[in-house]
Simulated assay, not measured.
Amino acid sequence: MQQLLAPINEFLGCETPNSWIEHARQPQQLTDLLIDHCNCELKAAQTAMMMVRKYAIDKSSANILKIWAKPYEDFVYSQARDAHAFLNRDVKKNDITNELVANHRLSISADLLSKMIKLIKEEFHHFEQVLQIMTTRGIDYSNMRAGTYAKQLISHVRTHEPLTIVDKLIVGAFIEARSCERFAKIAPHLDDELGKFYISLLRSEARHYQDYLSLAQDVAAEDISDRIAYFRVQEAALIMADDTEFRFHSGVPV
């Protein structure tokens, strides 16, 4: 695990403060932690899907992605959601990868498509895993308002291409890296089931961070170290800032 985390800790500008860990480990925070984590997994899938639709595929393939995401979005946005029915629904095992057609907007469109589809599959799976844990524990899913962490990072993205996609990919790398770091930090303080589950997520989250970063470097076709350093400062500032809301990616609890 230390080998896995070493490059992530080096990539991030700070560690999660102990005050966040102490707050997150309190039993009364478990419901909020799991609901926000569940929402984060779906948001990660949706973000990757939007990137694929915008940069990597044609219109017919975009419709295939919409159909793929529909059961998840129907569940999340329904007022009469049924977690048991959703988790036990009949799921088609067909792999949609071969149905998607990469466009030629970017030189890395095919690689972006391949990496992001794998990421989306895993994030959808993680969403279902968290939802299953919540359901088993009698915790109802709810549309908890997202924290400001991702929105504030995105606010620093440059507004003209190809700089926009480079920045979006770097932001994705930081979000995935921070998720991985926090899973490792909080796991020892949770019950055995949750602790093992969070440790099981480390490898995929670490790969997601690496995929985002390698795609950013490839599409930029020039050194992006300065841009990474810029976002490292912004991300660390958010993590170390006082925060009145407790979320999986929130700052120091007030």
Rank of each mutant, 00 (worst) to 15 (best):
R105N: 03
V91F: 09
D140R: 11
T135Y: 06
N9F: 06
A69R: 05
L42S: 01
H208M: 11
I67N: 10
E245Q: 07
I8G: 13
A44D: 12
I224A: 08
L34Q: 01
L112F: 06
I67E: 04
A24Q: 07
A221M: 06
R232A: 04
A173K: 01
I154M: 08
L194A: 11
D58N: 13
A216V: 02
L131A: 13
Q234E: 05
T164Q: 07
Y230E: 13
Q28F: 02
E22C: 00
V52R: 07
F183M: 15
R81H: 08
K121Q: 13
D111L: 00
I8R: 09
P188H: 05
V171L: 01
L153A: 02
G147E: 10
R158W: 07
R178T: 03
L215K: 05
M1C: 07
I35R: 09
E99G: 08
I35W: 02
Y55S: 09
M51R: 01
E15C: 12
L202F: 07
L163Y: 01
Q3H: 02
D111S: 10
R227K: 12
H125G: 12
D95H: 10
L112C: 01
K121W: 06
Q234F: 02
I67L: 05
N63K: 14
Q217S: 15
M144I: 14
K168N: 11
R247Q: 01
Y212H: 09
P71Q: 03
L213N: 15
H37N: 06
K121C: 04
A110G: 03
L113N: 08
L163R: 04
A102R: 13
V254C: 04
A85C: 05
A45Q: 08
V254N: 02
G13R: 04
M51W: 01
C180R: 03
A83Y: 03
Y209R: 15
A177N: 09
Y55C: 02
Q132K: 15
Q210L: 15
P71M: 10
V76M: 10
W68M: 11
I64N: 09
S200R: 00
L30E: 09
I108A: 13
L30V: 04
N18G: 13
M240W: 00
D223W: 08
F183I: 07
Q152I: 03
Y149Q: 13
A6D: 00
M134F: 08
E99T: 12
K70G: 00
Y212Q: 08
I175S: 10
S60D: 12
E123L: 03
G251I: 08
A62P: 00
L12N: 13
A44N: 01
K151S: 14
L42W: 03
R89D: 05
K121H: 08
A237N: 15
D218M: 14
E235R: 14
L190Y: 14
P253C: 03
Q152F: 08
L100Y: 06
D167F: 05
